[in-house]
Design a protein around this nucleic acid. Structure first.
Lengths: 195, 195, 195, 195
DNA sequence: TATGAATGAGTCTTCATTCAT
DNA sequence: CATGAATGAAGACTCATTCAT
């Protein structure tokens, strides 16, 4: 019993160590030896759980994303208005982006480097679906205009929110404008959905 | 004189070769030796024009971006309405993204790798400014609502348009939905700006 | 009881698996993991029966050689003439070489690698002795000339027969000349022994 | 001019260093780093002249063999009798085998390991041809019996001489019997060829 | 005996960069 | 400016072996 828990933890342990080290040093400068040292396992053990260094990136992206989505789903109250939900989503996205900025940058670049851009789509799929649902519900409730392709708009919405959060926390030199971006973003989106 | 021109072109020749090879093979798999072979120069010659391999990425990004912006500026007619200009911008962005999809992915990843994310801002600066100007003009002309921070909205706008284009041409499996995305995007933005 | 038999066979099972895999992949590319997979036992089990990977080679060589010698001894009729016996020996040597060509190549290379060339001598000892006996008997019977060192000639003889078989089945591209070699070899030896 | 000589020497330098080190340590234990240290060049330089570690073996075999054959050809006097020539060939083969025993063992095992046994044939081709010529000449001169396939007998002859030399210098524990082997071998062959 | 997850030492190879010509 | 042979640091990955169960 204890054994099973241990086994399950070993992959997770390596993954967490990888996130830690990669966040600090970036993809190129991170050596497998750094990761296993951080994880407290042997060099060879890494290769029992991951086929290669590059295989880490999608695994991390997936892990990161799971957490974000969980956080969002758990915070959002289905009984509040669509716009209120939107605010919460933006809040959380900004928070998560701020907290994990290095890892996110890593994921973007890593997926591009390793040439598996399509992986993103698979990872995002549940998020797209979940947002689309909210949009359809809001359309049915007549909260927002209904002459839009809910699927595409879900993607644009996520793209816009995450892109803005990245703009603030990854590209911008300081974050003091975060609240301005936040406000403008919300306003921009509200107008887009307004009937 | 002919010689001088040739010499002057050598940097450009290497840059073009780099774009070609990088587009085909991706960042990790592209070796300097591939680039110089493609360019038809000696290995050492590369280092006469670029200080290092990593220095290529910003140079390419810059080159790419110049072309895009030029194309946009030259196509946009200042006398048409803001929304008409918007349509043109979206058109061109989609075109450029489609044409240079691999290079763009490369630029994103490359900038993240080399840790010079702030470079982006410098490169984009003129574009931000130019869009901001259009927004201010449109606000003054009362074409669009004026309760928005023109600077921030310029960034959001560019982010949204480019993000959507990338969605279509980099992440999506096929491009047959391009026109749907195009239409929804335009509609989304129009509603945002509407008074 | 059945269990005991099974256990006893486990070493043999591993040895056979090793022969199979090594014949297919060669020494360098064969991993212990391949062998145990083929044998259907666990990785650690290998080390219950063999102290190391290199220990396989002499074990295989020995096993191979035992079989060959048994086959030869059982086929040879002591009552026939020396030259008739020679023919049979050549026949069998050609057969065995043809059947186990990869394993033989392996044994040669393996013995050289592990630096235990002298092992060969030990393994061949019984064969040398046996051939030498035949030679002495034939000398006593005046079937062949007797001005030769029976010990040395036994070695030369074996060397020549096996070398020729290897020439045909290991080095030659096709085996269609096997019978020519066979005939020339026999004739060559006969003349050597002739009074 | 000096430059050309230098270039030509660098590959040769590495090859000689490889022979030295491999003779001492064997294939498995020899590291590229040992070879380049011995050769006095950089690690990477090795790969400018040889595609891999394994590529050394055929190159060494070839080099070794060239030297032997040259030595033989230069020593043999075409005007002497076939049997006299035979004696010289045996002499030289014994000498060369004694001198380069480790390298020869290496070549045999190495070619087997790397699975390129057929290379041997290509390398030996000129030697086979040269011996065959002598046999044919001797047949024409009626020095030896002419009811033999000169091609095959050339191979058997070489096989027998080299095999015996290896027996003496590679497998035998001490070499004090060398002259006995030498005498028996010559006698064995003479009888084979006798009319 | 049997297992197979874990170990970690060990090395081949790559490739950005340099510099003598 | 141009060359391209030479450099050598650096690290991903392998795999024989061990040992707790």
């Amino acid at each position: 019993m204890v054994r099973v828990i241990k086994e399950k933890n070993k992959r997770e342990k390596i993954l967490q160590a990888a996130i830690t080290v990669l966040s600090e040093k970036g993809l190129e400068k991170t050596k497998i030896s750094d990761i296993v040292k951080e994880a407290g396992v042997a060099q060879g053990t890494f290769y029992l759980y991951f086929p290669s260094k590059n295989a880490l990136i999608p695994a991390i992206a997936d892990s990161m994303f799971q957490k974000s989505l969980e956080k969002i789903k758990e915070k959002i109250d289905d009984n509040t208005s669509f716009f209120h939900q939107l605010e919460d989503i933006i809040d959380i996205t900004f928070q998560v982006t701020a907290e994990y900025r290095e890892v996110l940058a890593l994921c973007y670049s890593g997926l591009a480097i390793t040439g598996v851009l399509q992986e993103w789509e698979k990872i995002y799929e549940p998020y797209y679906n979940w947002i689309e649902e909210r949009i359809i519900i809001a359309q049915n409730k007549k909260e927002i205009r209904d002459d839009m392709n809910s699927r595409i708009i879900a993607k644009l919405l996520i793209e816009l929110i995450e892109g803005t959060a990245e703009q603030v926390y990854l590209f911008e030199e300081d974050e003091k404008n975060a609240s301005d971006y936040h406000r403008e973003l919300l306003s921009f989106i509200k107008h887009s959905f307004a009937k």
